[in-house]
Amino acid sequence: MDLSMMARAIAVIGAGIGIAGGSIGIGIIGAKALDAIARQPSEKKDIRTNMILMAALIEGLAFFGAIIALLVVFK
């Protein structure tokens, strides 16, 4: 196996780990947000906005990982 192939494989694994971390974070946010909505349905709108904001911030980090991996794979 040559070195670039190795680098690609590692990059893909890294992207997978990064995305796994992001998905754990988003899962926790979703669960907590649903909990909060179930407890206080009147605050649904605020909770949803903040949920999307938090999820988006985490998603951004996951994307960093995915894009760095993409750069490695296709370069």
């Binding site: 998603e59 951004g60 994307f63």
Partner: peptide
């Protein structure tokens, strides 16, 4: 920048 990356990556992927 993350704002731009998010949209780009979502649409692209």
């Amino acid at each position: 920048m993350v704002l731009s990356l998010r949209l780009f990556a979502n649409m692209f992927a």
